[in-house]
Computed example of a mutant assay.
Amino acid sequence: MQPATLCYPICDERVLLIRKKRGLGEGKFVGPGGKVEDGETPRETTVREVEEEIQVSVTDPTKVGEFEFVFGDEPKMFVHVFRAEEFAGKPRETPEADPQWFDFENVPYDEMWEDDRLWMPYLFSGETFSGRFRFDSDGEEMIAHELETGVDF
C-alpha cells in the first residue's frame, strides 16, 4: 500500500484546499500532499509537498489522522493527515494545484472525495481520527467505511 500525506493549512476557521490538476483525484478539491519518498518521514513529505504544490512553507504540522483507501479489493493508499496552523508564504497556483481558501461552513464537499465529509469536521476541531474507506474499483463511489475518533499517534 502506497504511503502518502495530506496537509490542511488552517487559519481563522478557514481551510486551504487545492483543486488538483493531475494524477489521482484530478479536478477534485483536496489538501496538498503526495507520496512518501524513500527515506522520508510522513512529516517531511508533508512539508515538501506543500512547498512544491502551493509555494507555502508549513512549520510543525500536526498529525491528526490516518486512513486507508481501498479501490475494489485492492489496497491503494495509506494516508497520513496533517493540519498546519503555522505557515509562511502566499499560496500560488502551480502546474499541480490551484489553491483556494474556504470557510469551514462552505467546504465544497460535492467537488471532493466522498469520504471527506465524514472526517473533515474532526480535522477542523483538531480531534484525531482513523479510518478505512472502500471505493468501487474505479474510485468513483464509496461502498463502505469505518471511522474511529480519539486515536493516539
Results as ranks from 00 to 15, higher is better:
I18Y: 01
G72Q: 05
E140V: 06
E86H: 11
G65T: 01
G25D: 05
K28F: 12
V15E: 03
F69R: 11
Q100A: 14
K20C: 05
R132Q: 06
I143R: 15
E40K: 10
M142N: 05
T62C: 07
E26Y: 00
V56Y: 07
Y8T: 03
G131Q: 05
D103P: 03
K90T: 13
G39T: 08
E114D: 13
D138T: 12
F135A: 02
F78H: 15
P42V: 02
E53R: 00
R117T: 11
P75K: 11
E93T: 08
R14C: 13
R134P: 01
K28P: 00
A84G: 09
E96G: 00
G33I: 04
P95S: 10
K35N: 03
G27L: 09
T45S: 15
E141L: 03
R132I: 00
D110S: 15
E127N: 11
W119A: 04
T149C: 08
D110N: 14
R48I: 06
E26K: 15
P91H: 05
R83P: 00
D138V: 05
E74K: 13
T41Y: 09
V64L: 15
V50K: 13
G65V: 01
R92H: 08
G72V: 04
D73N: 06
G89C: 08
D103Q: 06
R83C: 10
R14T: 10
P91F: 06
E105C: 08
V30W: 00
R83Y: 03
I54W: 09
